[in-house]
Design a binder for these strands. Structure first.
Length: 507
DNA sequence: TTCCGACAGTGGGGTCGCAAT
DNA sequence: ATTGCGACCCCACTATCGGAA
């Protein structure tokens, strides 16, 4: 199949806001794709590559050869080239990667170049990704979306079930949980406090400690153990201690869901950065797994059991030191006391879970609701960046600073979150007025007079080598602009430091 | 008719390995 | 030895569509 068909469809999908129309367009291409190419075409329509990593990113696609006049590239050729590019390593590989990439782009038309750039950097921006693709596959194969979605979640992606879907309902139904093949993990929505979370989840609930580590899904088949991350990356080699623990469990085949964390010497949690470092490099102290769900045990799939039954199996199989701390009860005041204890022990927060809910792979629903404490600061805007995509033309990403009592401001991070369209419009005007350059439109970053105070919510502070104070905000977002405060009344860097050393922060 | 669940988009900081400088 | 890049870990929030209520 010619790449041009996919590219033209992508443009058409971008052009309509109707999701039904997007799905219809995607399904039409799938229906006419040659049977052998359907999985690849599906991937491309859904905005992803077959290659997990290519080594080519935004920066490498800066200056490209002039486009071809005629559309001759096929999807198979693109895939073959990227496969070669992805396989390059060692001295000279960067040059080879560049040469092959330029060759590919030189054979692409202008439209195709733009599309290639988008899909390689992971920014197709057509308003349709995996979920729309799942619906399109269902439509093209004339099967219920629910069945296709379930198979896709259990197979680790829609592209893996395309062939089965076109074979028919029976083949699709044959795709279940397979020990050794990671599934899309179930995710949690969030609530501002425990009461709201309990309300959302319903009467029969449990409360789990939420650990600030790395999500792990562990599959064991005999002595063979594989560990996958949230994005289904295989990190088995980096966590040998977890492999040993899972091998020690009294079961032959099992699938576990949990969190891995590197503990401090006193047994308390380490900051996320340290667990992340330890997990990324595979060297350092031992990481401890904390499991909170059991999805398969010795030939029995547990996914569709109510949660409390899975939990009972988990308690039976996994010793307490390797399980997440869980509260079960009736009294909301009791639940609150548990949550307070969890926070006091230095953990990140809690997850409230419905005791009757099945394990819905890949879904972020009301069955799991996380609650984390929120901190706030009044900071000063030091600069602003022009937005992109739907924020083009608006000043979007703001640079945040704390007041330095000795004069000036100490930058602590940036944020683009929490802004409504109304706020974006307002701040674009406001910061254009405060700009300290003659032509604010000339540069990506626009420095401003440090006069505007903004109330910022954030999850915590982390060590930073990037910012001069040695501190950075984690998950900063705008709550509101404060016109009742001058910059001289903003929070100081000293207050921020005290905050960082606070007793409940842990680090 | 209104409400709300699910999606996509818009980016944040830190960390690593790797190849080039 | 240092630097830049790509990839992946953690992620919050808003706008929008379309089915549910």
């Amino acid at each position: 199949m010619l790449l041009q068909e996919v590219v033209a469809t992508s443009r058409a999908v971008s052009a309509t806001r109707s999701r039904k129309e997007k799905v219809r367009l995607l399904a039409a291409v799938l229906a006419e794709a040659p049977a052998g190419e359907r999985p690849l075409v599906a991937r491309y329509l859904g905005g992803s590559l077959r290659q997990r990593r290519t080594g080519v990113g935004w920066r490498s696609l800066g200056d490209l050869p002039s486009p071809a006049d005629e559309a001759t590239l096929t999807v198979a050729e693109v895939d073959a080239t990227l496969e070669k590019v992805a396989g390059l390593s060692g001295p000279g590989s960067a040059g080879m990667r560049r040469t092959r990439t330029e060759e590919l782009f030189g054979r692409a038309t202008e439209d195709e170049q733009a599309w290639l750039r988008g899909i390689i950097t992971g920014e197709v921006r057509q308003g349709a990704l995996e979920a729309m693709l799942t619906e399109a596959v269902a439509a093209a194969a004339d099967l219920p979306v629910k069945q296709v979605r379930r198979a896709a979640m259990l197979a680790g992606g829609t592209a893996y079930v395309v062939e089965a879907a076109f074979e028919g309902e029976e083949a699709l139904a044959g795709i279940g949980l397979t020990v050794g093949r990671p599934i899309q993990p179930m995710l949690a929505s969030s609530a501002p406090d425990l009461a709201a979370a309990l309300e959302k989840v319903g009467a029969d609930a449990a409360v789990d400690a939420k650990l600030d580590g790395i999500r792990i899904q562990v599959h064991r088949d005999g002595q063979d153990v594989r560990i996958a991350t949230r994005s289904l990356d295989d990190i088995t080699e980096r966590l040998p201690e977890v492999v040993e623990i899972v091998r020690s469990l009294p079961a032959d085949r099992l699938v576990l869901d949990g969190e891995a964390m590197w503990l401090a010497d006193d047994g308390g949690p380490r900051p996320f950065q340290e667990t992340a470092s330890r997990t990324a490099s595979g060297s350092g102290g031992a990481v401890t797994p904390y499991f909170f769900d059991l999805l398969h045990r010795d030939g029995r799939d547990l996914l569709d059991l109510p949660a409390h039954e899975r939990w009972a199996e988990l308690d039976d199989l996994v010793p307490e030191p390797w399980r997440v701390t869980r509260w079960r009860g009736e009294d909301p005041a009791d639940a609150q006391a548990f949550a307070d204890d969890v926070l006091a022990s230095g953990q990140e927060g809690v997850v409230v879970k419905a005791a009757g809910a099945t394990y819905d792979a890949g879904r972020r629903g009301a069955a799991w609701v996380k609650v984390k404490p929120v901190h706030t600061l009044d900071l000063v805007v030091l600069a602003v960046e022009w937005g992109s995509g739907r924020r083009r033309g608006w000043l979007s990403n703001i640079h945040l600073g704390a007041r330095d009592p000795d004069g000036g401001f100490v930058m602590l991070g940036k944020t683009f979150k929490g802004m409504t369209d109304e706020i974006l419009a307002w701040q674009t005007e406001r910061f254009t007025e405060l700009a300290t350059v003659d032509d604010p439109a000339a540069d990506w970053v626009v420095p401003v007079r440090p006069e505007q105070v903004v109330e910022i919510a954030f999850d915590g502070l982390q060590r930073s080598t990037r910012y001069p104070g040695g501190l950075a905000l984690r998950f900063a977002r705008v709550l509101r602009y404060r016109d009742d405060k001058s910059a001289a009344e903003a929070d100081t860097i000293e207050a921020v430091r005290d905050h960082a050393d606070g007793p409940t922060r842990g680090h």
